[in-house]
Simulated assay, not measured.
Amino acid sequence: MSSGTNQSHSSQPSPLVLESVAKHFGGITAVADVSLEVTTGEVVGVIGPNGSGKSTLFSLAAGGQKPDNGKVWLNGKDVTGLATWKIARAGISRTFQIPSLFDNMSVRENLLAAAVEGDWKGAPQRASDIMEMLEISHVVDNLASELSGGQQKLLEFGRVCMRDPKVILLDEVTAGVHPNIRRIILDAIRRLRDTGITFLIIEHDMEMVREICDRLIVMDQGRVVAEGSFEDIANDVEVQRAYLGRRK
């Protein structure tokens, strides 16, 4: 993998590069010297057992946590340790396992609120386009609190899109949703990928990652233990050990 430093001097730097990032909580190592690079328009899945460090890795990339060691590069710029809002302005946005919405605001208002710091003039049309893509136009005036769990995940995905990000991090975005909402999300990822948006996805749904991801990264105990295509990962002994039993 090219280092972040080299990427910063490239005419077309990779959208997201993590360089030997590490995070410790007391005596627990949540992420241990993880390096990864995601190229423009690539959809990369991050899988692994619960507690393997996936969500912490997302927080390090998005600024929710500051790495104890290592670097985070976004479009060739060193954003290590910057505030979350600064990293978001630089072009990275994420969803959470539990959607974080303005419950007492309508669907439209939630989307427009996400665009306050961006292109406000074009925001209403962009909101309409996103609602159409995510098939939530029929609940445009509903409060976020009135939506189903699946619709709330669609709305949070839409809020992320309103920020016009270069990199989108999706944390179990299809967990527990109706198959039709899962289809909407997959179609939206494909559509956005075709425009050059890059995705890093945490997901336990192996059928989804097989269907949508160009490449998989497997984490266990804070480390990357395997990387490759779905077929390579499915047959990897280290991955089987990670899911079926800890290494001795």
Rank of each mutant, 00 (worst) to 15 (best):
L155I: 11
L147W: 09
A127L: 01
F102Q: 11
Q152A: 00
A88T: 13
R89Q: 15
G63H: 07
G150C: 06
E117L: 14
D103Q: 05
W73Q: 10
V116S: 04
V139W: 00
T84Q: 14
K71H: 12
Q151A: 02
G122R: 02
I92C: 01
K71W: 07
N104S: 06
M133L: 03
L112M: 08
S148N: 08
Q152T: 00
Q125N: 06
L155K: 02
P67R: 10
R108P: 03
D68C: 00
S137P: 06
P99Q: 08
Q151K: 08
M105E: 13
I136P: 05
I130L: 04
V72M: 11
A83S: 06
G76Q: 05
N75R: 13
K121H: 11
G70A: 04
L143G: 11
A115M: 03
G63L: 09
L143C: 10
S137Q: 10
P67Q: 11
E135R: 00
W120V: 15
V79D: 12
F102V: 10
A123D: 05
K121T: 13
K121E: 15
D129H: 05
I98V: 15
G122K: 02
W85H: 15
R94F: 02
L111C: 04
Q97D: 03
N142V: 00
S148V: 03
K121P: 09
M105I: 02
D141K: 15
A115P: 03
A144I: 09
S93I: 13
S145P: 09
N104Q: 14
T80P: 11
D119W: 00
S100T: 12
A83F: 08
Q65N: 07
V107I: 00
R126S: 09
V140W: 06
L82W: 07
K77A: 15
K71S: 14
N75K: 12
I130K: 01
G64L: 15
R89S: 15
R126G: 05
R94D: 00
G64I: 12
M133V: 01
A114S: 12
L155F: 12
L101F: 03
I98D: 15
A113H: 07
G70V: 00
L82N: 14
S145M: 05
I136Y: 13
M131D: 03
Q152W: 10
G150I: 09
A113W: 09
G118Q: 09
Q152C: 03
P124T: 02
G150A: 06
V140C: 04
D78R: 04
A88P: 08
K71L: 12
D103M: 07
L134H: 00
S145W: 03
W120G: 07
G122V: 01
D68A: 01
L101V: 03
Q65R: 06
D78H: 11
A115T: 15
E132V: 00
L74E: 04
T80H: 10
M133C: 01
K153W: 08
T95G: 04
A115N: 07
L147Q: 12
D119S: 05
